[in-house]
Design a protein around this nucleic acid. Structure first.
Lengths: 251, 251
DNA sequence: CGTTCCGTTGACCTCTATCAATTTGTGTGG
DNA sequence: CCACACAAATTGATAGAGGTCAACGGAACG
């Protein structure tokens, strides 16, 4: 909630981007790298619980997550909240606000979050001079849409247990793809309240559902987070496709 | 379901696009119009019930809806279906499949549907030579994402009655913006089964919910569709923002 | 060492799903 | 123009999933 808990710094140069070397991201041309370096305006840090973007505001910046976790959500006036998706390293956020003016959703940090900040005013130049990068941005938007489709299917048509398993499994796989938590058992920095608001369930029922998964030895709650013990069986319960993550762009 | 019921034709030139003159769409530069005319490969017709795009297939074309209604959906293996969004004139479809290969959702016609077909192979050229159009495509993708966010909020956190009112109201407003049904009472070419699969409810409960709206004189079912009688009160029940539709691109 | 956050549980109740007909509207062939 | 066939809307009865309320316990924090 506190925007104050954000800090601007400038530490990572694009040439030494800690993310780009990961095998999941596509190669960059020299000229693209140069441009992105100039496109990057600085960095922003947000601690756990801090708001990065706020529904209704007019923040025109564009960000790429360098490290950490966050989530995107919308709220109704009476306080009901729906988590739309989670953000993790390599994800682009703020595109809607950048293109269409007012933000229609908020983003909050789930862990200390490090963001690259891009200059909106240079976006036109990006589209003019670097069609490959422009294509990448569209690609990332389409990927976000795909994840939302899947979440909507989940909330609309899967049972509580399926939804829960699907959420945990897909977050885990996304996290692994960008090297979060290394090889250790993946721990998701989420609370059951957050899961409830993601799955469209009440907190109590979410707890009972997660308990079932825990009783079967698939997950465990500890250290303010969820530890995944048996990804394969979670995927079975979700009985979903989970296509392999393909090479993707990183702006 | 029948792909056979699709026909390729070529009747509308981009210069005389029936959609572009509408006030909701942004102006086009001469050069952009020329390019789009060459980008357009032909037209495709689909009758009510015909599949335009199929989940799991590799159709790499991109389409813009010229006239008619359709819907985008996903299915689980056991038959459960979730409608993700509706498509109407001016909407771009097939972007996910074009960019990422395999389609992750299907699109079916709700009424006779007329589509402009674009050539995937020229998309690179579009990004290279017409950054304004590239930007437009990204813009449309972001808009789709925004609508999905709203639908997810609805299915996850709104009550059945709110969801129903929200759906009918937002479809009506979108239809009006692109001049569907002219000034006449707007009629939505949807069935209650479709509404059920959109709202994440059962058919029976959807019927009872719609009945409440009908009893209050807000809608009426007739002619295989839903007639909207009192848009304002529907919006009240949905108690949602409904920002005015701004000028938007049309590719 | 109290406070706060978060996970956990049991009791109870409501909303929504399911089942099973029935009715109404539309399209078709006679 | 009528009868039949089928799609879609309705409705009542019953069951089950999930919501709400209220407490409690453990762990992190100041």
């Amino acid at each position: 909630m506190n925007e104050q808990r954000q800090q601007a710094t400038r530490q990572h140069t694009c040439e030494r981007c800690p993310l780009r070397p990961l095998p999941i991201f596509r190669e960059f041309a020299e000229s693209e790298l140069d441009f992105v370096a100039s496109f990057k305006k600085g960095e922003l840090t947000a601690e756990r619980g801090a708001s990065v973007l706020i529904e209704g505001s007019h923040n025109a910046h564009l960000y790429t997550v360098l490290s950490g976790w966050g989530f995107r959500y919308k709220m109704l006036r009476d306080g009901r909240r729906q988590v739309l998706n989670y953000v993790m390293p390599g994800d682009l956020i703020g595109l809607q606000g950048t293109l269409m003016g007012e933000m229609q959703h908020s983003v909050e940090a789930l862990s200390p979050l490090l963001l690259c900040v891009f200059e909106r005013s240079k976006l036109d130049q990006l589209y003019k001079c670097h069609p490959g990068l422009a294509f990448d941005i569209t690609w990332l938007a389409a990927r976000e849409e795909q994840m939302l489709d899947e979440n909507l299917l989940s909330v609309g048509r899967r049972t509580a247990l399926e939804r829960a398993a699907f959420l945990i499994a897909s977050l885990t796989m996304r996290a692994k793809a960008v090297g979060l938590n290394g090889n250790a058992a993946v721990g998701l920095p989420i609370t059951q309240q957050l899961v409830a608001d993601t799955l469209g369930l009440s907190l109590v029922h979410t707890n009972k559902t997660m308990r079932k998964l825990a009783d079967r030895g698939l997950i465990r709650w500890r250290d303010r987070g969820c530890e995944v013990l048996d990804l394969d069986r979670l995927r079975d319960i979700a009985h979903s496709e989970f296509p392999a993550e393909t090479k993707r762009p990183l702006v």
